[in-house]
């Protein structure tokens, strides 16, 4: 896709390289960044001096908005065939989920309402028991 104007995440119109790439939930990003931050700490210097502003802001953001704190829970959610966006936003009802991620109903994913509801239930169970 060349024209910037055409991209629309709601219809899954995003550049090919991102469709192929793995999307990460905030919780996963938090794990990765915290691990990296610890590594830098072990190297001795004050990590705050070394990391970029982008890194710092991202870390703060994902810490604030990660829904699953426990690494095992994150792994469980990841194994579940759901969408990262749902893991990030944790919608409570089927309508909410569809409003958040319209593409959940299209593009051959063919999730019907029941399937979506089951998925949301499972996700909230994982969250409850983490």
């Amino acid at each position: 896709m060349s024209a910037e104007e055409e991209e629309n995440a709601a219809e899954l119109k995003i550049p090919d390289e991102f469709l192929k790439a793995k999307c990460l939930m905030n919780s996963e990003v938090a794990l990765i960044l915290e691990h990296k931050y610890e590594q830098l700490q072990q190297m001795g210097d004050d990590p705050m001096n070394q990391v970029s502003q982008v890194f710092e802001k991202s870390l703060q953001y994902v810490k604030r908005f990660s829904r699953y704190k426990n690494p095992d829970a994150v792994r469980q959610v990841r194994e579940y065939p759901s969408l990262c966006v749902l893991g990030n936003l944790c919608p409570e009802t089927v309508e909410e989920a569809i409003a958040m991620v319209p593409s959940i109903k299209t593009r051959g994913r063919a999730h019907d309402d029941e399937a979506i509801e089951k998925m949301l239930n499972d996700l909230s169970l994982i969250k409850k028991f983490e």
Partner: peptide, 28 residues
């Protein structure tokens, strides 16, 4: 790890400034 916002995407953000024109928020 890259952060790329897309048109049509829904995400959560923290409000950083409010004025009469609207407000600014930050997501990462």
């Amino acid at each position: 790890v890259v952060f790329r916002p897309f048109k049509g995407e829904i995400l959560e953000a923290v409000v950083t400034m409010v004025n009469k024109m609207g407000f600014f928020a930050e997501a990462g």
